[in-house]
Every structure is written in structure tokens, then in C-alpha cells.
Computed example of a mutant assay.
Amino acid sequence: MATLPSTKQCVSRRKFRIRLRSPKDGTIQSATVKLRGKTVATRKGKRVTAPIDLRGLPKGTFTVAIRVVLTDGRVVTGSRTYRTCAPKRSAAKTPKV
């Protein structure tokens, strides 16, 4: 149903788009994407994409919930959990002598 980035690695400070594909036996009428329970995007049309912005969020897990309404009235739902991690620490620079 949805093409989403991998959940295997930290995606902290990342911004990406998810692309929702129509099932073989239906066409998307509308789609709603939520992050942390808040609506991020509501889309209509054939090529449905939605932005997901995890930049600046604290370390932890966040769920992206997707609700798609098909033209025949069926509702398809799905979710994916992403893990953010602490920003990488820069290596301490040693002063040149």
C-alpha cells in the first residue's frame, strides 16, 4: 500500500516523502497521513505523496499512521514506526602543536 523508507536505522533529523500506491483492485479517493496523532497531510488524486519530517524530534519512536479511502468506499489503514536517535557527536578536534 505505501512505499516508506526503512525502519532498520535511525532517521533522526530526516525529512522524507512517502508515496501511497493504489491497490490492484481499487483506486485511491483520499488519503490521510498522521504523525504522533496529528494530521500531516490529506491528499486526493492518483499520485498520492505526503511529507514526513522527523527533524528536531527527540530520541524515541514515532508512528506514522495512514488511512486510505478507496473509490468503492473501502478503507485501508496501515502504520509504520520510525526510530529517531540522538545526533551524532562530532569528533573532538585536537589542537595542532
Results as ranks from 00 to 15, higher is better:
M1T: 04
T3W: 03
S6C: 02
K8G: 06
K8T: 11
Q9F: 11
Q9W: 09
V11H: 07
V11F: 05
V11K: 02
V11W: 07
S12L: 07
S12N: 15
K15M: 08
F16H: 04
R17E: 10
R17C: 05
R17F: 00
R17G: 11
S22N: 04
G26R: 05
G26H: 08
G26V: 00
T32D: 08
T32Q: 13
V33Y: 00
V33T: 07
V33A: 04
L35W: 14
L35D: 12
R36P: 00
K38V: 10
K38H: 10
T39Y: 07
V40P: 13
T42D: 10
R43L: 08
K44R: 13
K44F: 11
K46S: 11
K46L: 15
K46A: 14
R47A: 11
R47C: 05
V48L: 09
T49Y: 08
T49P: 03
A50S: 07
P51R: 04
P51F: 01
I52Y: 01
I52S: 00
D53I: 00
D53P: 02
R55V: 11
G56D: 05
G56C: 04
L57C: 15
L57F: 14
K59L: 05
G60R: 14
G60W: 10
T63M: 04
V64H: 02
V64W: 00
I66A: 03
R67D: 11
V69N: 06
V69D: 03
L70R: 06
L70Y: 04
T71C: 09
D72A: 07
D72M: 05
D72Q: 05
R74Y: 09
V75C: 10
V76F: 05
V76N: 03
V76M: 06
V76Q: 06
T77N: 03
G78E: 12
S79T: 10
R80T: 15
T81I: 13
T81N: 05
R83N: 09
T84P: 08
T84W: 07
C85P: 07
C85N: 10
R89T: 14
S90P: 14
A91S: 10
A91V: 12
A91D: 11
A92M: 14
A92C: 14
A92D: 15
T94D: 11
P95Y: 15
P95R: 15
K96A: 11
K96H: 12
K96V: 15
K96T: 14
V97D: 15
V97L: 14
